[in-house]
């Protein structure tokens, strides 16, 4: 089982690096992305400061100013998603093809044993394409998804590509940045 599990970790490191590399090529290095990123960070900081200073005040002028910055931030965030979208499509296609190839290679193979029995709605994933009803047997896809969740996020963070906390906070996401793809 060592060889299968290590192979899966290796595969997910490679796909994470490939994904980040492609995104860098198509998005991160472009001038438009960098400009938008700087702008979003600037206005997020500005908004945070304004809100801290005048959070509870009923001053109409301040409220209007805050609203204006919020509106600008929204537009910038939308533009940023549009810039990212193009590469997401390309990466999505590439990864769907790769994943189906790996799925064929590991089809019906028990790659690991789980030290716990997953809850029913995870069993569809953790026992995918496996026969029998021993639900502690783990399929390729389950381990791959877990690896990707952990490795991709950490690689993004190490390379400095992870979105900043301030931006996430303004966007109101609950668990911070999630890897955009499991495919």
């Amino acid at each position: 089982m060592w060889s299968d599990t290590f192979l899966i970790v290796f595969i997910s490191i490679c796909t994470a690096l490939l994904g980040e590399g492609l995104t860098w090529l198509l998005v991160y290095r472009t001038e438009k992305y960098q400009k938008l990123k700087v702008e979003i960070e600037k206005s997020s900081k500005k908004l945070e400061k304004r809100k801290e200073a005048h959070g509870d005040s009923v001053d109409k002028q301040q409220k209007k100013k805050i609203e204006r910055v919020e509106e600008k931030l929204k537009i910038n965030n939308r533009d940023l998603s549009m810039v990212k979208m193009k590469s997401m499509f390309a990466i999505g296609f590439a990864f769907t093809a790769l994943l189906s190839m790996f799925n064929n290679i590991f089809d019906g193979r028990v790659v690991a044993r789980l030290p716990f029995t997953p809850i029913p709605w995870v069993q569809g994933l953790s026992h995918r394409n496996l026969t029998g009803d021993n639900y502690t047997e783990c399929s390729f896809i389950f381990l791959y998804i877990l690896c990707t969740m952990s490795i991709r996020q950490n690689i993004q963070k190490l390379l400095g590509f992870a979105p900043s906390r301030m931006v996430n906070k303004q966007n109101g996401s609950l668990f911070g940045p999630q890897p955009q793809q499991f495919k």
């Binding site: 089982m1 060592w2 599990t5 290590f6 970790v9 690991a112 044993r113 789980l114 030290p115 783990c138 381990l143 877990l146 690896c147 969740m149 952990s150 996020q153 950490n154 609950l174 668990f175 911070g176 999630q178």
Partner: peptide
């Protein structure tokens, strides 16, 4: 919640790999 989900995923991967191996 800072890094909780990622750390849970890393923990599960390590736990499963070592336990199986």
């Amino acid at each position: 919640k800072e890094g909780f989900v990622t750390s849970l995923a890393g923990f599960l991967v390590m736990w499963i790999i070592i336990y199986s191996g």
